[in-house]
Amino acid sequence: MFTDSHCHLTFPEFAGRMPEIRQAMAAAQVDRALCICTTLEEFAEVHALASGFDNFWASVGVHPDNEGVTEPSVEDLVSRSALPKVVAIGETGLDYYQMEERKGGRSIGDLEWQRKRFRVHIRAAQQVRKPLIIHTREASADTLAILKEEGEDGGARAAGGVFHCFTETAAVARAALDLGFYISFSGILTFKKAADLREVAAFVPLDRMLIETDSPYLAPVPYRGKTNNPSYVPYVAQQIAELRALPVEAIGEATSRNFEALFKGVKS
């Protein structure tokens, strides 16, 4: 019934826990998960996990925040995306959050390497016709501008994709929707101080929405502060159901249909 469209099951928090995680998913009626790649060094492990289970899939990409890792070329991404069970490019995008604290005093202008990396991912996605998984944090204006500059406008050339773990404004959501992208909501939607985000979730059309955990991060209420895992994604669906006065089953079914529509090749 439910699909976790974004999780990091190869991270250290899950070492040796896959039987437990999969049992919890089954009990929670979470039928599928997309395992996200954040470095090329990590890709082989992500791909092996997706290849080992019929209801897991993989992406290939280098997270915008990762430094000191192999810088991807279009060819790197294209070749890996051709492997079985790889259904998306990313996660990719821009992250300008807390520049002073996290980037050693560098300015947004100093992050041209992030913007170049983002363009590489977009071009690879367009070449292989697979959707982008977009990460944007305090960088929405540049994210949207680069997508438009690279032809991601919903036209024939565009790869499309999803703005994952959405935390931006309604205006940004409208702009992303206008470009043909989906919007994915995480456990943040359940947090007490997320009233503005809940308004965005009430606005986004149900046929353009996904749900996710971003495991091991951002566990929803009532598990906030604990290690997140895909079995908790129904709590995100429940929050959306309450916002829309719909049964949670309707949210699970709709977001799972959307997952199939966006990520071609996944099984129903």
Rank of each mutant, 00 (worst) to 15 (best):
A175T: 11
S256T: 13
S256N: 08
E101S: 10
R119A: 04
R115K: 12
E91R: 13
Y182K: 00
Q126H: 07
R208V: 14
E71Y: 15
A176Y: 00
H63C: 13
I133T: 08
F56V: 04
E138W: 11
N66M: 06
A250V: 11
E45W: 08
F181H: 07
S140H: 09
C37T: 10
G154A: 13
L179M: 04
E67R: 14
P64M: 07
A241L: 05
I122W: 07
P234D: 10
A141N: 06
A201C: 11
Q238I: 11
G155Y: 06
D207W: 13
I188K: 02
L246K: 11
D4V: 09
Q239V: 07
I21S: 04
Q238D: 05
W57P: 00
C37M: 11
S186K: 01
R119K: 07
A44C: 06
K192F: 12
F11A: 11
L189Y: 03
D31P: 08
A88V: 04
N229H: 15
L206S: 11
R208E: 09
F163L: 13
Q127V: 00
A158H: 10
A175Q: 11
R17F: 10
V204M: 03
M1S: 13
Q29I: 09
V128T: 02
V233M: 12
A24C: 12
D196I: 05
S73P: 03
A237T: 10
Q29P: 09
M18R: 04
I134P: 05
G151D: 12
A50V: 07
I108E: 09
T190W: 02
S140R: 06
D178F: 05
K192A: 12
G180E: 04
F259P: 00
I188P: 07
L132R: 01
G61H: 00
F56M: 02
F53A: 03
A202D: 12
R117D: 09
D214H: 13
L147K: 00
D110Q: 11
R174V: 02
A195D: 08
P131H: 05
I146S: 07
N55F: 10
F14C: 07
L218W: 13
R198K: 15
E91L: 15
D153S: 15
S215R: 15
P19M: 05
L147S: 01
I188S: 05
A219D: 12
R137E: 07
T190R: 02
R123M: 10
A173F: 05
L179H: 00
I251D: 08
T10Y: 06
H63S: 11
Y182V: 00
E75M: 09
T190N: 06
I21Y: 12
P19Q: 04
P19V: 04
K267V: 15
G61T: 05
N66D: 10
A195W: 02
R244W: 10
E212Q: 14
P222F: 14
F43L: 04
F56N: 01
T70L: 08
D110L: 05
P216R: 14
A124F: 02
E67W: 01
K116I: 14
V266G: 00
I240E: 01
A50D: 03
K193M: 08
N66T: 15
V266I: 12
S73L: 02
R257Q: 01
A173P: 02
